[in-house]
């Protein structure tokens, strides 16, 4: 059976890693929500240069690997004199990467609100910003919640790249424990369980919300 003593002997390391994984995921979620919303607005705003900027950001970031983005923050920025701690570099990398996906999610949500409604709101005298604020966004948010949940699950999983840059997360400590004890199988199972504690409930919740939304339509 699984050797539980590995878990108890390194309990503080697992716990610290778990805490940091959660912290990195939450911080990156907030950051990428803000940045992603901004980029989504750029993409649909009636201003050409902003459209280009938003599109360029989303298309470029979506098509390159996360670990590359993280490496840019970790070893690229120091090359031009900006030094960030592993955890900070990793979390920023996650934020920048995830923002591109969240931007797409939010844009899709906004576009899903029918054009007719927008036009009706505009013709009834609301400004573009008011239309967005009072008509489109409240509806879009409801549509966007389940896919945002999926993005958060991805974020928790993707935060494991912090392990590669010594970001003190769950993956880092798990990997460290397995390297030091020569016990790989059991340690990785424990690491998996810790990730599942975060992701499984989220995944079930997202499934529930998706079904509810589907029924509401």
């Amino acid at each position: 059976m699984i050797d539980m003593s590995i878990l108890f002997d390194h309990w503080d390391m697992f716990l610290q890693g778990f805490g940091n994984t959660l912290k990195a995921s939450l911080l990156a979620l907030i950051g990428s929500f803000l940045l992603g919303t901004l980029m989504a607005v750029f993409r649909i705003a009636p201003v050409r240069p902003l459209n280009w900027l938003g599109t360029a950001y989303v298309e470029f970031i979506r098509n390159i690997p996360l670990i590359l983005v993280v490496f840019v923050f970790f070893v690229g920025l120091p090359a031009i004199g900006i030094r960030l701690e592993s955890f900070v570099a990793g979390t920023l990398g996650l934020t920048v990467y995830t923002a591109a996906f969240i931007a797409e999610t939010i844009r899709a949500g906004i576009l899903a609100v029918s054009k007719g409604q927008t036009e009706a709101a505009r013709s009834s005298g609301l400004t573009y910003v008011q239309t967005m604020r009072y008509v489109v966004l409240p509806q879009a948010i409801k549509i966007v919640i389940p896919p945002m949940g999926n993005q958060f699950i991805n974020l928790v999983k993707n935060s494991s790249v912090l392990g590669v840059i010594a970001g003190l997360d769950l993956m880092y400590f798990g990997d460290l424990i397995s390297a030091d004890t020569f016990v790989t199988f059991d340690v990785y199972i424990f690491v998996a369980v810790f990730y599942l504690i975060l992701t499984l409930p989220l995944s079930l919740l997202v499934g529930y919300l998706e079904r509810r939304l589907a029924r509401a339509r």
Partner: peptide
Amino acid sequence: AKNIREKAPDVEVLEFENYAEAFTALKAGQ
């Protein structure tokens, strides 16, 4: 890593996948 933890318990030890990554991190001021 084990040795430095024993002999200099106050410092923070950061471990990377290999020495190339570790040296890159050192050069990056990490």
